[in-house]
Simulated assay, not measured.
Amino acid sequence: MEASRIAVAGASGLIGAALVRSLTADGHEVVRLVRRTPRAKDEVEWDPERQYVDAAGLTGCDAVVNLAGAGVGDRRWTDAYKRKIRDSRLLGTAALAEAAASLSPLPRVFVNGSAIGFYGETGERAVDENSPPGDGFLPSMCVEWEEAAAPAEEAGVRTVFARTGLVVSAKGGAWGRLFPLFKAGLGGRLGDGRQYWSYITLHDEVAALRHLLDTESLSGPFNLTAPQPLTNREITAAMGRVLHRPTLFAVPAPALRLALGEMAGDVLGSQRVLPTRLLESGFSFAFPGIEDAIRAAARG
Rank of each mutant, 00 (worst) to 15 (best):
E2K: 14
E2L: 12
A3K: 15
A3D: 09
V8E: 08
A9S: 14
A11F: 01
S12V: 09
L14Y: 13
I15L: 15
I15Q: 10
A18M: 07
A18K: 05
L19K: 11
S22Y: 00
T24E: 14
D26Y: 00
G27C: 11
R32T: 11
L33T: 09
R35G: 10
R35N: 13
A40D: 12
K41I: 00
K41A: 15
R50S: 14
Q51Y: 04
Y52I: 01
D54K: 01
A56R: 14
G60Y: 04
C61P: 07
C61Y: 02
D62H: 13
D62Y: 01
A63Y: 02
V64M: 08
V65G: 13
V65D: 11
N66L: 06
L67C: 05
G69W: 14
G73W: 11
G73S: 12
D74Y: 02
R76D: 05
W77I: 11
T78E: 04
R83V: 02
R83H: 12
K84C: 09
I85E: 07
I85A: 09
L90G: 09
G92S: 10
E98L: 03
A101Y: 13
S102L: 04
L103E: 06
S104Y: 00
S104A: 14
P105F: 02
F110W: 08
F110H: 04
N112V: 03
A115D: 06
I116N: 01
F118D: 00
Y119V: 06
G120E: 08
T122I: 10
T122R: 08
V127E: 07
D128G: 07
D128M: 06
P132G: 12
G134M: 10
G136N: 08
L138C: 01
P139A: 06
S140M: 08
M141C: 14
W145G: 02
E147G: 02
A150V: 00
A150R: 15
E153Y: 07
E153W: 12
G156E: 09
A162Q: 03
W175H: 10
P180F: 03
F182R: 02
A184T: 09
G185M: 12
L190K: 10
R194T: 13
R194H: 13
Q195M: 08
Y196I: 02
W197S: 03
I200H: 07
T201C: 08
T201G: 09
E205V: 01
E205A: 13
L209A: 08
H211R: 11
L212G: 11
L213C: 11
L218Y: 07
S219H: 14
S219W: 07
Q228H: 13
P229G: 12
P229D: 07
P229M: 11
L230E: 14
N232Q: 13
N232F: 03
A238L: 01
A238S: 14
G240I: 03
R241K: 13
V242A: 12
L243I: 04
H244L: 11
H244W: 08
P246W: 06
A250D: 09
P252E: 10
P252L: 05
A253F: 01
A255I: 00
L256Q: 04
L256C: 10
L258I: 02
A259E: 04
M263S: 11
M263K: 02
D266H: 06
G269M: 05
G269K: 05
G269Q: 04
V273Y: 10
P275L: 09
L278Y: 05
E280S: 11
S281V: 04
S284T: 15
S284M: 01
P288C: 10
G289W: 00
I290R: 00
I294K: 09
A296K: 03
R299H: 14
